[in-house]
Design a protein around this nucleic acid. Structure first.
Length: 441
RNA sequence: GGGCUCGUGGUGUAGUUUGGCCUAACACGCCUCCCUGUCACGGAGGAGAUCGCCGGUUCAAAUCCGGUCGGGCCCGCCA
C-alpha cells in the first residue's frame, strides 16, 4: 500500500492508510494510548488500544522507525481533525536508547547551553521547533531566489579554493594544496564582479570563510552569504534592489511560515511596504543621536558600534515604522573603504556604500564598485596592492575589457534568519555552526 | 587579541557568598505499576551524579586556594 503523508491523512477519512515515520511521542494512558508519528511534513496521531499493539511499543524510544497501517477517523479532538485507529504497527528500526536531548519539548537556547544544543545537533534538529528554524532558512533562500528570478538575475557559483587572499583585510584560512598554499574564499566579491561582465545581474548563495578570532553572537568562521552584483545601475537603484529584496523575503516568510513564527513567538514585522520608505541615516547622524540619547560617544569612529546598531533600529521601529535601516555616509578615506569601492562623484570624501541593518544587526553591506580601469588601478596602488599579483590580475582584466557601472551586496543568511526569529546568536540559525572553538559535528 | 564570566545524573537547575544537617535536592527524560481522549497528560514507586580535571588547605571540601581543560558574554573586526 502506498505511503500517505501526515498532512494528507485527513483526506482519507473512513479509509485504511499506511504511514511511515519516526516515533515522536508516546502518551500511554492505559487502555487508551496515543502515539505521534513524525514524517517530513509533520505529525500524525495514532490511537492504540489493542494490548498486543501496545506491547510492541514497550521499550521503544523516540526515534524508532515505524510503519503504521490503520483506519482514518475524523475527530475534532485530534490534531488536524483526524487520526489513525485500530493500527497494525510494524517496528522497522527499533530504538532502545533514549535520545540525549529532548525531542518533543522546547530546547534550551540560553547562551551558556548552546554548546549542548550543538553537541547533540543531529538529534536535536528532530525537535520540531529546532527544525522550524531551518524551514524558515529554506524559505528565506527560496524567497531570495524568487526575487532574483523575477528581476532577471542569473545564479552563479564561484570557487571557494583560491590561490591567495584577494580582498585583504579579513584573515583567511590557509591549507595545503598539493604542496602549494591555497586559501579559502573570504568573499565571492571578485568573481561576481567578473560575472557582471557576462550576465549583468548575478547572485550566489554559498559559504564564505573568515579566519577572524571573533567570539561573538554575530560571527562564525563559515557562513552563507547571499551575494548579488548588478550592472548598469546607480547607488539609488542599488539601495532600491536591496530594500525590495528584504521586503519580499519578510513577506514571503510571513505568508508561508506562520507555524514556525508562532513556535518562536514572533508576533509581527514592522517594515514599510516600499523600499523607498526604509529610513536612512548617515553614520555621523547616528553617532550624534546615540551620543545625545545615551551619553556614550562614538563620534570619532568611522563605523557604528554594535550598541549604536541596536539603538538606531529601535529608534527607527518606534519613530519611522521600520525595523530595517540603511546606514550611509561612509568615509572614502578610512580603512572601511576598499580599493574596489567607488567614491561619490559629488563628494569624493564619501563612499557610495551602505549597510542594511535589521533588528539591530548588520545583515548586508552594499556598495557601488569603481568600474573605471584607470581609477581602479590607482586606488589599488594607493592601498598598497600590486595589480600584477595573481590575486588581482584576473579581476582587473575584466575592467580593462569593459565594465559598466555596477554595485552589489554581501548579505548574511544566518543573521537574517536569526533576526527574523528573534534568536540571540547566528549559530542558532546554523545547522552545524563553525566558530573559533567548534569544528564538529 | 583584550575584559568579564560559567562548569553539579542523559537534559535543565538548587546548593557555593558564611566548609559540617550533602549519605547531594528539584524538574524533564528513563524504568515498573495505575489510568478510555491525551496532546509540555495525570498519579504512585524506582534507577541514575564520587559535583570538569589535578593538586593544596582542613578533623571535614560541590563549597576555600592554586593550576589546568572546556564553554559562554561583551569589545575590536565583520555578513
Amino acid at each position: 500500500m502506498n505511503r500517505v503523508l501526515s498532512t494528507d491523512v485527513a483526506k482519507y477519512a473512513k479509509k485504511t492508510v499506511t504511514i511511515r515515520g519516526w516515533l515522536h511521542k508516546k502518551r500511554m494512558l492505559g487502555g487508551l494510548n496515543f502515539i505521534n508519528v513524525r514524517d517530513r511534513r509533520g505529525l500524525v496521531q495514532v490511537l492504540v488500544e489493542d494490548k498486543d499493539e501496545v506491547e510492541k511499543l514497550r521499550g521503544m524510544q523516540i526515534g524508532t522507525v515505524l510503519t503504521v497501517k490503520g483506519g482514518v477517523v475524523e475527530d475534532e479532538r485530534a490534531p488536524n481533525g483526524a487520526e489513525i485507529h485500530e493500527p497494525e504497527i510494524t517496528i522497522e528500526i527499533p530504538v532502545t536508547d533514549e535520545p540525549p536531548i529532548e525531542i518533543d519539548k522546547p530546547l534550551n537556547h540560553k547562551s551558556e547551553h548552546l554548546d549542548t544544543l550543538f553537541e547533540h545537533r543531529p538529534i536535536g534538529l528532530r525537535n520540531l521547533r529546532e527544525k522550524g528554524i531551518f524551514n524558515v532558512q529554506a524559505k528565506v533562500l527560496e524567497a531570495f531566489r524568487e526575487y532574483f528570478a523575477q528581476n532577471d538575475f542569473t545564479e552563479m557559483n564561484s570557487p571557494k579554493l583560491l590561490a591567495e587572499a584577494t580582498e585583504g583585510g579579513a584573515e583567511v584560512f590557509k591549507l595545503d594544496y598539493f604542496g602549494k598554499t591555497a586559501t579559502l574564499a573570504q568573499s565571492a566579491q571578485f568573481y561576481k564582479q567578473m560575472m557582471v561582465g557576462v550576465f549583468e545581474r548575478v547572485f550566489e548563495t554559498n559559504p564564505t570563510y573568515r579566519a577572524e578570532p571573533s567570539a561573538t553572537t554575530r560571527h562564525m568562521t563559515e557562513y552563507i552569504t547571499v551575494d548579488a552584483e548588478i550592472g548598469f545601475i546607480d547607488f539609488e537603484q542599488l539601495l532600491g534592489f536591496a530594500g525590495e529584496c528584504l521586503i519580499y523575503v519578510i513577506q514571503k516568510v510571513q505568508k508561508d511560515c506562520a507555524g514556525e513564527l508562532k513556535m518562536w513567538n514572533v508576533q509581527n514585522f514592522t517594515l514599510p511596504d516600499k523600499a523607498g520608505d526604509i529610513p536612512r541615516f548617515t553614520i555621523s547622524e547616528v553617532h550624534e543621536m546615540f551620543a545625545k540619547a545615551t551619553k556614550e560617544d562614538h563620534t570619532e569612529e568611522d563605523d557604528l558600534a554594535p550598541a549604536e546598531e541596536r539603538w538606531i533600529c529601535e529608534y527607527a521601529k518606534k519613530n519611522k515604522g521600520s525595523e530595517a535601516v540603511f546606514i550611509t555616509g561612509w568615509s572614502a578615506r578610512s580603512k572601511t573603504f576598499k580599493f574596489y569601492h567607488r567614491a561619490n562623484e559629488e563628494n569624493p570624501e564619501l563612499a557610495d556604500r551602505a549597510d542594511l541593518l535589521f533588528r539591530g544587526v548588520e545583515i548586508a553591506t552594499l556598495s557601488m564598485r569603481e568600474h573605471r580601469y584607470d581609477r581602479l588601478i590607482k586606488q589599488l596602488k594607493a592601498m598598497g596592492g600590486d595589480p600584477k599579483s595573481p590575486g588581482y590580475a584576473p579581476l582587473l582584466s575584466v575592467y580593462k575589457y569593459g565594465m559598466p557601472p555596477h554595485g552589489g551586496w554581501g548579505w548574511g543568511l544566518e543573521r537574517t534568519v536569526e533576526k527574523i526569529l528573534n534568536l540571540n546568536s547566528v549559530k542558532e540559525a546554523t545547522l552545524f555552526p563553525r566558530d573559533i572553538n567548534r569544528l564538529s559535528p
